[in-house]
Amino acid sequence: MSYCVNCGVKLDSSLDSCPLCHTPVINPNEPEHIKKAHPYPTEKGQVDSVRRSDVAILTIIVLLATSLSCLLLNLYVFTGIMWSLFIIGVCILLFVLLIPLIIYTKVPAYVSILFDGIALAFFLYLITFTTPGIGWFTKLALPIVVLLTILAEVFVLLLRAFPVSFISTALYVFVEIAMFCSGLELLIRHFTGSPLRLTWSAIILTVCCVIAIMLITVLCIRRLREAIRRRLHF
């Protein structure tokens, strides 16, 4: 180990010069090859990149540019039907869907699903401007969207209120499929003026009921539950 002739401090054997005064270390008694390992690593690091905000900005700009350019094209070049409303609607829908993913991650799930439902309904409403009537929207499309939104909200509520497991999630999914199909058939029948009864959805309802009963049984019997978890874990 050498001393700095200028500062009088002892220098770590990894140093070639005094870091205080830059005087080089020349010690003929200490050959180069017995130098100690450097006390600090030599590799430099980089700050971890956070791309979320960049992606968000890019997405918003792309969606805005697409909507605006299509609207201008529709108004001044390809005039006729208001086809640009489809694209604007899709852009709005994409924007709303992407909010909780990349733009503002702290939106509560319930609010986010509600906004998604509203955006979907708004998109379908925009389509009515290019169709002869609005009846299909008010009597069929809107109720389906409302039903879908309610079921999605209930699904999240169930996941949050009760302990989550693969089997319980499967149970919620099958019950909701049954409810959605039944609701869908009833809404279609109401729209077409047919009598309100279940036909094709009754089959789905039956199958889902059987699966749901099976899953409830598995959830109630611990031994079965463990066996299923063991064999189906991923």
Partner: peptide, 18 residues
């Protein structure tokens, strides 16, 4: 440099790593 030189002047043996 001023800091460690003062310590050396006061009789403290300082080892430097950097």
């Amino acid at each position: 440099r001023y800091f460690f030189r003062k310590l050396v002047e006061d009789g403290i043996s300082v080892t430097i790593e950097s």
